[in-house]
């Protein structure tokens, strides 16, 4: 696997083991680019909020495409922050395992709570 590794990936993998001054220097431009991407993402999400996606995407009114689009953009931005600013893409296994659990329980908390409220008369979806 290591032989077929692309150059870009290799530098990341190297960075992983050694945040040496040389490696860090190479990354400065990348940090700036990501910052720029995040700002563009912000503009994008604002722009998207004022477009009615339900008009031309499948599902029409029944699917709230605006929410989906906004969340996709937010997730992408989040990925950039966590992955590169927080160096998660080159982090140690130990951290990954901790975060994997967290993500799972986070999802459980969100999803199961909402699922179990679906039929409850407290939720006024029908109105």
């Amino acid at each position: 696997m290591s032989n077929s590794m692309q150059h870009a990936e290799h530098s990341v993998a190297h960075d992983d083991h050694d945040h040496s001054a040389e490696e860090v220097r190479k990354h400065v431009n990348r940090y700036l680019l990501i910052g720029l991407a995040l700002m563009i993402g912000t503009g994008l999400t604002v722009w998207a909020a004022f477009i009615d996606f339900g008009k031309f995407l499948p599902g029409g009114e029944s699917v709230n495409w605006n929410v989906i689009v906004a969340l996709i953009i937010a997730c992408a931005k989040g990925f950039l922050v966590v992955g590169f600013f927080m160096h998660l893409i080159s982090e140690k296994k130990m951290i990954y395992s901790v975060l994997a659990f967290t993500v799972f329980f986070f999802a459980a908390l969100m999803y199961l709570t909402i699922w179990s409220m679906e039929h409850s008369n407290i939720v006024h979806l029908q109105q």
């Binding site: 659990f101 799972f104 459980a108 199961l112 699922w115 179990s116 679906e118 039929h119 409850s120």
Partner: peptide, 25 residues
Amino acid sequence: GFLSFIVWAHHMYLTGMGTRIATFF
């Protein structure tokens, strides 16, 4: 440890949750 995060609503069976989710818990 893992499962204990996804059983909590067994304390809430009487709150009128749907049958499918009750079955899950």
